[in-house]
Design a protein around this nucleic acid. Sequence first.
DNA 1: GTCTATAGGTAGATAGAC
DNA 2: GTCTATCTACCTATAGAC
Lengths: 202, 202
Amino acid sequence: MWVMRTDERITLAMAELLRRQGYAATGVNQLARAADAPTGSIYHHFKGGKREVAEAALRSTGAAYIRLLPLLLDPYEDLVEGIEAAFAAAGEDMRGTGWANMCPVGTVTGEVADVEPRLREVAGEVMAGWIEEGTRYLAGRGLSEPGARSAMYALLAALEGAFILARGLRSVEPFAAAGRSVAAYVAALGDRAAEPGGAIIR
Amino acid sequence: MWVMRTDERITLAMAELLRRQGYAATGVNQLARAADAPTGSIYHHFKGGKREVAEAALRSTGAAYIRLLPLLLDPYEDLVEGIEAAFAAAGEDMRGTGWANMCPVGTVTGEVADVEPRLREVAGEVMAGWIEEGTRYLAGRGLSEPGARSAMYALLAALEGAFILARGLRSVEPFAAAGRSVAAYVAALGDRAAEPGGAIIR
DNA sequence: GTCTATAGGTAGATAGAC
DNA sequence: GTCTATCTACCTATAGAC
């Protein structure tokens, strides 16, 4: 793509700002500057203003993020090993951006879920999509359906929490520990699935 | 305490507002209303204004939260069982408050770590204190020191992440899964510690 | 579709009477 | 120490020329 449409630039700039400073602290003028667009263009493309831009940003980054799961785990024949490696990679990525690289969906949900019901809804839809797609993927890697679903909840919680802890502590240690924890859980699920009679997993 | 000092009311009100709507969305006038104090009193007690109030709120809730760890886990002779129960309790607590009951430290860290360096520092200090105290507690429950530390990182990450997922999805399922995951990790750490030669734990 | 100018409101912060 | 009135600056959003 040699050119990027104005509305795409606006959405992308919003996603970046949400990751770094959240929704409330992000101003429309700041967004316009970041997207290299005049203020009026934002309201031309997004009649709902700032909030509608944020909704678009959450949806688009949500779709992009879930694609990382197979991308990071496919190379590992051993799923448990892959999970530890994926968490480690996320930690290094965050360190490389000066501890700024957070998930906008998690940031916004924590920040303004009570005050902006529409954003909470969109974030919830994105998260639900993550769970569904992730469950399918993990089931394809050998976990039972309920086991895969539970593992996906645990994985996402550990990941979102590791983002926050790493950002506060400026350390990759939360990612390392969270990765080991989720890996241990998946390993335990796998062991149980491999037992005779198999797949009794809560 | 029959009376509560003005500065205490302000700090407490700020903590509550931070949990529900974050730092940037919380206005000084709103804070004054919530604390039942005039705007000027805030600047009388906190020369640094809004940001200094937020610092005090993070420190005080940080100290209060870590006390919950022994409170929730002491009743359980089996640590692994206790961890699952504690996560379940946190989830129910959150459901009871209409999915609003989040940790202000995590919220603020996710929201304005880049934009308000002082708040990031304070949040980091609070988190580091959680790790230290939590590591001591878990070591007292039989884990090796490095195992306890790693478990504490994993526990906090899973908990902060579960807050976010539960808030977005309006479901306690993230807490259930996160609890099972951390419990599985602690169980694995314990098994290894019990092996002959013992306590080879990363 | 792009961009400028600006309206109307609210923010954080302060001054100073009590 | 408490409280009111108010300042300046910035916010979201809009109107309308190009």
